[in-house]
Design a protein around this nucleic acid. Structure first.
Lengths: 210, 210
DNA sequence: ATGCTATATGGAGACGGTCTCCACTTTCCG
DNA sequence: CGGAAAGTGGAGACCGTCTCCATATAGCAT
């Protein structure tokens, strides 16, 4: 524990110019929040988190002005894991398999906390959200893998990154509230991948339109 | 129950043996609730509904013990419309088109109120919910049209009614919070119908398994 | 060390939501 | 018309979010 006093963190993350006690508190809050979000989902009581982190509610809200801000901070590790997943997926030679691997990683990420899909979806449309940045990145990444699979003739050219990402969100939403509901994750992923129509019929619809 | 002078309503609907004032209040609450759910989504304040219906909170909770109960009552007309939609769909000769029509009606129903997909999904797994009955019926109806389309070779035999219904729920969830998010309902419906994979690739996955 | 100030803290309390409880009012039957 | 059964309203307990500011503290200058 080499306590290096005040040194300004030149390159890295946010908690740079905070006073020592503030940094400590921020950390306590964050750890407690991660535990609570894991256990009780994204609707965990913020005051309860503050209480258990042994700080006042004001302190929590000073560090994290909104639930989303706290959520975003609590998700950083998971996001790192997701990015690692993306890197692994990139190294898969088959474009379709790579896309599949990415979507699987994405599902895992979206199930970090119960109810996570909702704020993520909100962040997609709402500009200023703290989750927004990562969220745009997620769409972009989805686009990257989708493009590759399309180039390779494995994914439909009619599908856009946005659509695929939103579909994945919908799937995650169903999954995290309904796994014990008579279906498996695999089955629903398959429906998303293949659709419910027969191939021949699907092509008709493609050309015929509505 | 020795002296049940008040005859139990054997067959029909709910508002049977209520005192005149009670029936009137129930009706006022229901009308107000329909308006509020329409305007503010399913999270509309119940106390606010009571206030605007000019009844006490206790009265509201006596008639409708939970938000779900009120919701279920407020949805009755919409459910009737949905059933009518099902009947129309039945009369379509093409099995695939019939399935499509049903799913479209279902989407309309699920968008009766903002946020409706969530309680419906909850009702799928939670036995005792007031929405549960209608919800089971919805899965059954979906099964009816899916079966027909499968018989006709238009829908994949690997898909079950439950899966299709849950997918539709996920779609509705995305739609009702994200329509103004860079995508159209039609596009997402198409993804659900066809999947994101190319037909050839989809067949590989079918055989290859997980 | 010591003083000083920017920084950070805690928790009381305003607000709004859910839901219960029961003293009171109303209906309606005999 | 009288009284029991049915129904009512709204006060208030409880819980969650979020703000505000008197107070406490870290860390720099001296």
């Amino acid at each position: 524990m080499s306590t290096d006093g005040v040194s300004t963190d030149a390159v890295s993350g946010e908690p740079s110019r905070l006073r020592a006690d503030a940094r400590r508190n921020r950390e306590r809050i964050l750890r407690t929040a991660m535990r609570h979000f894991s256990q009780h989902g994204i609707d965990a009581s913020l005051d309860e988190i503050a209480r258990e982190a042994e700080v006042g509610a004001g302190t929590l809200y000073r560090h994290f002005p909104s639930r989303e801000a706290l959520l975003a901070a609590a998700l950083e590790e998971r996001q790192a894991a997701l990015l690692a997943g993306a890197q692994q997926a990139r190294e898969i030679s088959d474009a379709g398999a790579a896309l599949g691997a990415w979507l699987a990683s994405l599902q895992d990420y979206l199930r970090s906390f119960n109810g996570l899909p909702a704020p993520v979806l909100a962040a997609v449309k709402q500009q200023g959200s703290p989750l927004c940045l990562s969220c745009n990145a997620l769409v972009a990444l989805t686009g990257e893998f989708l493009d590759r699979a399309q180039q390779d003739g494995q994914a439909r050219r009619t599908v856009t990154a946005n659509e695929l990402f939103l579909s994945a969100l919908g799937l995650a939403w169903v999954l995290d509230r309904a796994e014990a509901c008579g279906t498996t994750r695999e089955a629903l992923e398959k429906v998303m991948a293949q659709g419910y129509l027969t191939p021949e019929r699907a092509e008709d619809v493609t050309h015929g339109g509505g």
